[in-house]
């Protein structure tokens, strides 16, 4: 475009742009507010758990979005990667309950999930659409059944460790690192190749993109962070059971991604926050009294509400909250509208 000019957001040198500065300030503010509320004693049990779920679901949703939203490879098996990470971390942290072992657990969980992701991805990523979804679903089920039958994973009753080994600052930091790494990957040449594959695989191949290589790459990175999310889960909630990693967990993660918008990182973050806040509220609140007329027992209807919301969202906004846009694009759009008015 001829009239294109550099917006104030991209002014600056290298990494030190105005935009990155704003993001940093916002992140610090979010972290600071939670810390202040904690000192004031406003954050306790259930809210603490809700915050942990938000961080874990952001990690899981953003990593699945890389596979399904950006590369267009429909995966229904993210709970499998999560399970691998969770069990690896639980076993390591269960043996040596120190802070470094948590870090080792997170890394090992991610790497092991990535290795499994590559092993599964190389043969199955040749499959298209629904076939891939079913193959990944099968993989996750196999992982769960194996976890249920091995002694090292504690069988059906699972593994227990004592105490929160991961705390809020750690959860927040890992979440931020995940989002930064994945959004930078998407803006790299490799990430562009992934998006090209999503748009049209045949056209991308004829432009010289090795589609298998990039699909496996996206799958491996997604699996790595899926494993990290699982490791966070098991180190925070100290219980690691096979039931947690059932098909429903994969569905929960996929729902967050689709609700936020396939191919929108900020959409995934927003929807992870909204959905985990709502579900945690429905779980912790006992009943809602509607104008003193009748009361709804949430523990009995929360799944029904969730299902109804799901169908309603898909019927009225099938492309999700953000579509493929990011938060930044919204500001640009508002700016453009102002220009037009002037």
């Amino acid at each position: 475009m001829a009239s294109e000019r550099k917006s104030i957001f991209s002014r600056g040198v290298g990494v030190l742009t105005v935009k990155n500065g704003i993001i940093l300030v916002l992140l610090l503010a979010a972290f600071g507010i939670v810390q202040i509320l904690r000192w004031l004693g406003w954050i306790y049990g259930p809210i603490d758990d809700a915050l942990a779920w938000i961080c874990i679901y952001v990690v899981l949703a953003v990593s699945l979005n890389l596979i399904t939203g950006f590369t267009g490879q429909f995966s229904l098996g993210h709970a499998g990667f999560m399970a691998i990470g969770a069990y690896t971390a639980a076993i390591i942290v269960g043996r040596y309950q120190t802070f470094p072992s948590v870090l080792v657990g997170l890394a090992a969980g991610g790497i092991l999930a990535m290795i499994v992701g590559i092993l599964i991805g190389v043969p199955t990523l040749r499959l298209k659409g629904d076939y891939l979804a079913i193959a990944t679903l099968g993989m996750a089920e196999i992982i769960r059944v194996i976890a249920m039958n091995l002694t090292i994973t504690g069988g059906a009753s699972g593994l227990f460790s004592n105490g929160h080994m991961v705390t809020w600052p750690m959860l927040f930091l890992v979440m931020v690192i995940t989002v930064v790494v994945i959004s930078n990957f998407i803006r790299s040449a490799r990430g562009r190749a992934c998006i090209a594959i999503r748009e049209d695989e045949i056209a991308a191949e004829s432009m010289g993109i090795n589609s298998t290589k990039y699909k496996v790459m996206a799958f491996a990175i997604g699996a790595f962070f899926g494993g990290v999310g699982g490791a966070l889960y098991s180190s925070y909630f100290y219980v690691t059971k096979p039931v947690t990693f059932s098909f429903m967990m994969s569905v929960n993660i996929l729902v967050i991604v689709v609700f936020g918008g396939l191919g929108s990182i900020s959409g995934s973050v927003i929807s992870a926050v909204v959905i985990s806040a709502i579900t945690q509220y429905l779980i912790s609140a006992n009943a809602l009294n509607v104008f003193g007329l009748f009361s709804i027992e949430f523990s009995r209807v929360n799944q029904i509400i969730y299902a109804l919301l799901l169908v309603a969202i898909m019927l009225f906004r099938p492309k999700g909250l953000m579509g493929t846009m990011e938060i930044g694009d919204l500001f640009k759009r508002i700016g453009r509208r102002k220009e037009r008015v002037q």
Partner: peptide, 23 residues
């Protein structure tokens, strides 16, 4: 709509049937 939207709807309908009956 996209196939993923219909699939999520199908999962939603499935949950709706299960938990409404459970209620």
């Amino acid at each position: 709509s996209s196939r993923i939207a219909v699939l999520i709807t199908a999962i939603g309908v499935s949950l709706l049937l299960e938990y409404t009956l459970m209620y």
